[in-house]
Design a protein around this nucleic acid. Structure first.
Length: 418
RNA sequence: GGGGGAAUGUCCCGAGCGGCAAAGGGGGCGGACUGUAAAUCCGCUGGCGUACGCCUUCGUAGGUUCGAGUCCUACUUCCCCCA
């Protein structure tokens, strides 16, 4: 994105903090945003019961929008999830039924409430579900109303479609319709709520442009699209998959401690960028933190972890996580703030096989994995590497009332008899 | 409608004369070195058992064989060519 002197608070902020990849009509959008509150939306799938770190980019974009005095709409894809977005997928994904989708949406909702203020005010966020309108269309009605505005020629030229065709992978007609549905979403939101901006990841560019053009053609109204850069770490890894799976945003799937650790382990080269994107810290402060070098940059990582965790899990959880980390990593002592797993006291008295205990504590997926880990020197009991996962752990191993188990240096669990 | 090909370790890509828990990558995890970083090097990467071992895996269902990812039959899905 070339440097442009934006006038609106919104675009100035988004640009300064690194949110902009492409904009359909930069000057027009800038003028609209400078003139008054703009209503904008981002769509989210309902394929899982929780969002993950990959979605955070979009959530934060909506947050910036609201902070700049505009109105965010969270669009839940209750209707489109039933079709499945083919973008960036190399194969069709399993179709979910209405009940699963409703459950997922309910489970996801709380996350947004952490980042956005919902309500009825002019800049309050609202959540809508596209099943509300998509489900009501009959096939013929849908085709007659919207099908005439899309040409196959154009749809075939889209990156996501070309990719499938080139790789000789099937793309069903159902999936092919996804982009129509997403365009209709935008049109529907424009009509219902006066929404004139759709945002999303850069992979959504094609889908977004379609919606923009549909509105401009059918309603002769201004409409804009804005995409954010693809989020990857400085070393090119896709973000969100680290220590054993996805970094979920729901606390019951991924503890605040883990979340804090995720940010703490950011690569040096990413610290500044992540601070700008995922925290509310002022830019001058970030510039200072970013300029730290060598081991000092660890201070910036702690600030990042603290601020990011505070946003999602609250100040107290962030504080607790920071304290636990400090105790475990910097002072090498136990802290009751570390994640704790309870075991039956009588069983521990009798002795439990270490491999079984590691599995029960969630450190490994199976006993076999625990054994392999132990052989490789990665399993620790009370900070002592334990090569034999078949040994039994008993109450004799209790130190200050707990047994400290660690898989590697970062995954630590306290086992407490109850 | 006819002909030819393909589906492999449930993260991905991919080799596999009938003896295979199945080559090799990538990714992930662990160790060393560091700063809870990156880069580099090393190890691990189906489940269960303390163990000689047992069980489950190569699109699905059958069959041939002492033995099948490998051969045969049917089915499913996909690709290519001809109509």
């Amino acid at each position: 994105m070339s440097e442009q002197p934006f006038k609106s608070e919104l675009l100035k902020t988004l640009q300064a903090r690194g949110y902009i990849h492409q904009i359909t009509h930069p000057a027009e959008l800038d003028a609209a945003a400078a003139a008054g509150p703009v209503t904008a939306y981002i769509g989210f799938d309902a394929t899982a019961p929780s969002l993950h770190v990959g979605h955070l980019f979009s959530i934060m974009t909506l947050r910036r929008l609201q902070q700049s005095g505009h109105k965010p709409i969270v669009l839940m894809g209750g209707g489109t999830t039933k079709v499945g977005d083919p973008t960036d997928k190399d194969q069709q994904r399993p179709l979910l039924d209405d009940e699963q989708i409703a459950t997922n949406i309910a489970s996801i909702k709380g996350t947004f409430e952490r980042f956005l203020t919902f309500g009825d005010g002019p800049t309050d966020a609202v959540m809508v579900n596209n099943a509300d309108w998509l489900d009501r269309f009959g096939y013929v009605a849908f085709l007659r109303e919207f099908g005439v505005h899309f040409t196959i020629n154009r749809m075939l030229s889209f990156e996501s479609v070309k990719l499938r065709l080139e790789r000789e992978q099937p793309m069903t007609f159902l999936e092919f319709n996804y982009m129509l549905m997403q365009s209709v979403d935008f049109l529907e939101l424009e009509r219902r709520l006066g929404c004139l901006l759709q945002m999303g990841g850069s992979d959504q560019w094609g889908n977004i442009v379609n919606g923009v053009e549909l509105i401009r053609r059918v309603d002769q109204k201004p409409a804009f699209g804005l995409t954010t850069p693809l989020l990857a770490t400085a070393s090119g890894q896709k973000m969100g998959k680290t220590v054993g799976g996805a970094i979920w945003l729901n606390a019951e799937l991924r503890s605040a401690y883990d979340y804090w650790q995720f940010w703490r382990n950011t690569e040096d080269a990413d610290v500044g960028r992540f601070l700008r994107l995922f925290t509310d810290l002022p830019l001058e402060e970030i510039a200072r933190l970013e300029s730290l070098s060598g081991a000092e940059i660890n201070e910036a990582k702690k600030v990042l972890a603290g601020a990011a965790t505070r946003l999602l899990h609250g100040a107290q959880a962030a504080e607790t996580a920071a304290r636990a980390a400090e105790a475990a990593f910097e002072q090498g002592r136990l802290s009751s703030d570390l994640p704790t797993v309870e075991v039956n006291a009588a069983e521990l008295e009798a002795g439990v096989m270490l491999a079984a205990l590691a599995q029960a504590a969630g450190l490994t997926a199976s006993r076999g994995e625990a054994r392999r880990l132990a052989q490789g020197g990665g399993l620790r009991v009370n900070d002592q590497p334990e090569p034999d996962a078949n040994r039994t752990v008993t109450s004799a191993d209790l130190v200050d009332g707990v047994v400290k188990l660690a898989a590697g240096k970062k995954k630590i669990v306290l086992v407490r008899p109850v």
